[in-house]
Design a protein around this nucleic acid. Structure first.
Length: 469
RNA sequence: GGCCCGUUCGUCUAUCGGUUAGGACACCAGGUUUUCAACCUGGGAAGAGGGGUUCGACUCCCCUACGGGCUGCCA
């Protein structure tokens, strides 16, 4: 951060009309990364002015989603609805400055105009007849406050992602700022809030790109500085269509429930639509240091579960054991699974070293941890049970006394097992099957030697005896 | 309809007028192996189409096609 630049302030401004969407999560992530990488602030504003669709449950779901992703915000979330009077105040101020006017056209009149225009194939943009009527000639009755948009010349937005975007001002309409019931519209609320919150960088979905022109009119009318804009393309489903329910999970929290680690999700989402050369894998600290607006792509990216899995696997492998254990417990909890016992938690801790390097997701890791989660007598699943025949039982019982006296480290164990295999003219692979089945009751597990080391001598021998019986 | 944005391997992307168009994921083949995962080696795979500008275009301009957004007293 250069010394002379003002501190960065970004914000995420979701409407609480549903859970935290994957696209929203990435928008939030970009804002968070940008602010946190520059010692700035990341603020949260809940755009809850649509009273019919906004619910406290959704608000909480969004907060929970952000929390899961590790995106911490500064201060309390701001409710846009609660700031309505401030928004109205600004509309009045614009009126006083002559940058806005009272419009007495009724909604019926306007709708009739639009219908006629549609039928005639002409522009449906409504031009209010009240724009230049002197105050003295204004009637009594309900009115809306409209902005006095420039109708000549052109307006340019300097967007960090889209570049300079210009439209002719004949496209600008005198949008409503304050409804006839005195409530503010979204376009006004956003600008006033961003200004009052001191937002320096607006990073949001590119569905707002054309709104930026309307919003700029308000900044200009109020003589406020326009923040730096960055409109980032939306995320699409694997088929290139807008991400929707039929693509499967669309909510951030659903990915937690599916067992993706938050770090993997962050890495994947950061890299989706943003790049820095060939860097693919990075820690949070690296991401904060690397992230910039220049690296954001201009075209929509498709969501690819395979790559998410790959990155998730890398982050699981690199995770701190204790942190990973917490994440596993949170995963179990959101899936309504029962808590881990003290013994299970302890087993997981001891086995973590060999579990985390072979799982791409948390459920995969848990499946491989079965040998340490389950307790005797183990019930082998169908596939594993196929390893138990008279021959393999014989081998297992032959192995037991050897293990009784073996030094309990990897090399010795390997040697013991290898010698038993050799005495029978078998390859290690032949022996590993039944051994794994006896120790884990599953076909999928860590290496048999790792399991023996984690389980310890007594438990190992007990499980082999169980299986040999 | 009008205005605006976008288009490089299957996917995410590098390239910022001169490269055999690079990397990652995925895929295929082979190897290693104790299951799963991982790992090693190799392979196929791209500039939407058409015009310009230029000594030279993936890079700049125009048109078309396709995709997306906005066009509300929704957010």
């Amino acid at each position: 951060m250069s010394a002379d630049s003002a501190p960065v302030v970004t914000r995420f401004a979701p409407s609480p009309t549903g859970a935290l969407h994957i696209g929203g999560a990435r928008t939030a992530l970009f804002n968070w990364l940008f602010a946190r990488g520059r010692g700035g602030k990341f603020l949260l504003r809940i755009e809850d002015t649509d009273r019919n669709r906004s619910t406290p449950e959704n608000r909480q779901a969004i907060l929970d989603g952000l929390t899961w992703l590790g995106l911490d915000w500064d201060g309390e979330p701001i409710s846009q609805f609660e700031r309505a009077s401030r928004h109205a105040e600004v509309a009045r101020e614009m009126l006083a400055k002559g940058r806005a006017y009272k419009c007495f056209s009724s909604q019926e009149e306007i709708e009739a105009f639009r219908e006629a225009a549609r039928a005639a194939g002409t522009s449906t943009m409504f031009r209010s007849p009240w724009r230049d009527v002197p105050e003295a000639n204004l009637p009594d009755g309900p009115y809306v406050i409209r902005i006095k948009a420039p109708h000549e010349g052109a307006t340019t937005i300097h967007d960090m992602v889209q570049g300079d975007v210009t439209i002719g001002n004949e496209q600008m309409d005198d949008m409503v700022l304050l409804r006839s019931d005195g409530t503010p519209v979204y376009m006004l609320a956003v600008v006033v809030d961003d200004h009052d919150m001191g937002v320096t960088h607006v990073i949001r979905g590119d569905d707002h790109l054309t709104n930026a022109f309307r919003q700029k009119m308000i900044y200009d009318a109020m003589d406020w500085d326009v923040p730096v804009m960055a409109h980032v393309p939306l995320i699409f489903g694997p088929d290139g269509k807008k991400l929707s329910k039929r693509h499967g999970a669309t909510g951030a929290a659903e990915y937690q429930a599916l067992g993706y680690p938050a770090a993997g999700m962050r890495n994947y989402l950061t890299r989706l639509g943003w790049s820095k050369g060939d860097v693919e894998y990075f820690t949070d600290a690296e991401a904060r240091a690397l992230f910039d607006l220049e690296g954001i792509g201009r075209s929509p990216a498709r969501f690819d579960t395979k790559k998410l899995e790959n990155l998730s696997g890398q982050h699981i492998a690199a995770a701190d054991d204790a942190a990973l254990l917490h994440e596993i417990e949170a995963f179990l909890e959101v899936n309504g699974k029962t808590d881990l016992s003290e013994a299970q938690r302890d087993g997981l801790k001891r086995a973590m070293y060999c579990l985390k390097e072979r799982a791409k997701t948390l459920p995969e890791l848990i499946e491989k941890a079965h040998f340490v989660l389950a307790s005797r007598p183990l019930v082998a699943d169908d596939v594993a049970a196929q390893h138990f025949d008279s021959v393999s039982r014989g081998i297992l019982s032959e192995l037991t006394p050897q293990l009784q006296t073996a030094t309990w480290n990897r090399d010795s164990l390997e040697a013991e097992v290898a010698s038993v295999a050799e005495s029978r003219g078998l390859k290690l692979g032949k022996l590993a099957g039944p051994l794994r089945a006896a120790l884990a009751g599953r076909n999928v597990s860590p290496s048999v030697f790792d399991m023996m080391l984690v389980l310890g001598r007594d438990e190992t021998i007990a499980r082999l005896s169980d299986a040999a019986a």
